[in-house]
Write a protein that binds this DNA or RNA. Sequence first.
DNA 1: TTGATTTGTTTATTGGTTGAATTATTTGCC
DNA 2: GGCAAATAATTCAACCAATAAACAAATCAA
Lengths: 331, 331
Amino acid sequence: MTGLTRATVSALVDDLVAGGLITEMDPPPRTGAGRPAVGLALSSAGPAGLGCEINVDYLAACVVDLTGTVRQRFVEHADQRPSGAERSLESLGRLAARARLAAEAEGLTVAGAALAVPGLVAGNGSVRVAPNLDWQDVDAPALLRAVPELADLPISVDNEANLAALGELRVSGGDPTFLYVSGEVGIGAGLVLDGRLYRGVRGWSGEIGHVTVYPDGRPCRCGARGCLEQYAGQEALAGDLPLAAASLGIALAAVVNLLDVPVIVLGGAYAPLFAELRAGISEELSRRVLTSGLADVVLRPAALGADAAMRGAADTVIRAVRDDPAAWLRR
Amino acid sequence: MTGLTRATVSALVDDLVAGGLITEMDPPPRTGAGRPAVGLALSSAGPAGLGCEINVDYLAACVVDLTGTVRQRFVEHADQRPSGAERSLESLGRLAARARLAAEAEGLTVAGAALAVPGLVAGNGSVRVAPNLDWQDVDAPALLRAVPELADLPISVDNEANLAALGELRVSGGDPTFLYVSGEVGIGAGLVLDGRLYRGVRGWSGEIGHVTVYPDGRPCRCGARGCLEQYAGQEALAGDLPLAAASLGIALAAVVNLLDVPVIVLGGAYAPLFAELRAGISEELSRRVLTSGLADVVLRPAALGADAAMRGAADTVIRAVRDDPAAWLRR
DNA sequence: TTGATTTGTTTATTGGTTGAATTATTTGCC
DNA sequence: GGCAAATAATTCAACCAATAAACAAATCAA
């Protein structure tokens, strides 16, 4: 597939095995005649990713190894709104430190950390706004690194819906292009195009909750009227489910018309309600998507549950190692 | 910038000069002391791109050289709706052949052709639907190649708004991410992300004309209700301009919320009306874009006029040569 | 046991890049 | 006018990763 010769591949694989990224499997899988091949697999003892998440009512951290297996998982339920950013991130840092130490006791090396937050994140990792946490301009990486056990780690920060979309990308059966919609208190979306998360120029993509569905409709806390969030957010969801489905369908039809996205994944609070929402969404999609006669849009519930964002965060770290293993070996 | 040594760069440049892609300039530009450098510029005598366009009321073809200069330009005004696809594409083929021959008489080598159509294009270049031409499943590349003078050319086909966006990308002062909105009989959009046109999985992105702005509004010929096209299409534009601006603003706010696009370019019929439309669009954008308090969305009229799609088409050909010059040299 | 088949390694060769030295061409200063 | 400094470009031996082809290893089937 790569066009490289067996000799070259062997040399490269030797480096990866020596660097602990790949292990040789014994006994190897077989086919027909001939000398049996040596099996190779991603190492479960090499570099690992530390995924962290802060949300309105919980803190979470996990360590995922190169194979994608969750090796450590810590969750702490507590309302974060009264704490303020500093106290919350200090608690999360301690939780993450526990996860890291437990993982390293198992022989893993944590290569880096990523943090999922329900808000807008600037390019340098600072959180511009997190409305539901009441945060503004929080330098999250610095506050996390204040915990001594994390001081040496590279830490990235991203929106929770974006990272949940990445988590879904990993477990999904290989749809390289889809929209992940996360129904929480607000509604966020993560857009994966050709296998890569599209973050937008300033990292502020995916704010589907504030797409207008009824221009003169209900007032939204953002100041506008008729935002999707007012019709399909967690509060509205408890009331009129058919309205929630129709409004979701209208907003999603806009996405499909604009981006020709063939798959939509419903996560967060939408996942358990998928059966009830599906028909209403589909109806609006088939009515309003210009190409609905040419090809269907696939609707499906998220495969990962509440851990999606945290797992996606950890995944960004190990994906970086997998995308450029030589950089890891040179470290 | 590349990290290559001068020796290596010299060797590579030698190949490009020998292949006619680059010419040495004489006299070169100067700075201070020292041996003066040899100036290098893209050759205006090398490979060129043939850009073609078919639209409701005209046919057009042009040849653009490596430097981006339009070297030949032919336009034929005539209503194409009564002709049918075969006759239209034969006429366009003859026009393109004239452009090609004239360009080759000037020493250019036409490397390929690209065709802009107002419709949905499949991956193989066939036009699935072009509503305003009343086309369905037209194998446009084959019909163009039926003209003997074009038989040897690789021909690609794309949506006109997509190609106009690419044309705009070339002349714009380097915004790598923007949405180009083309107001014609219908409304199309071309989405350029990080300097690359995003076509969607099936090539059907950019159908902003069928984004819903008023869910229970005017019926559209697509079967839905309240599509943008009914409020900001060429017919609606002649009537209520403030309504057109507001509805455009609502749809564009959705794009910005979803994609964090920092620049919106208004083309086609919108370009001459830019002054009248601007305030109405901006008002809705600042009201409905969640991040409008954090960073502005830039609105500007298209720099290229009616030639945008044709120029963008030609540009795709020369861009392919520039992106992989070695492939051209190996030919 | 033999031959076919497949996997993996060895080794000389190749081609592109590098680095250092060299040559070329200008400006600025005494 | 002559010389030093600065900058540009080329030459050439050395290096390195990948290649191709031969060879060794390990299995199955007859």
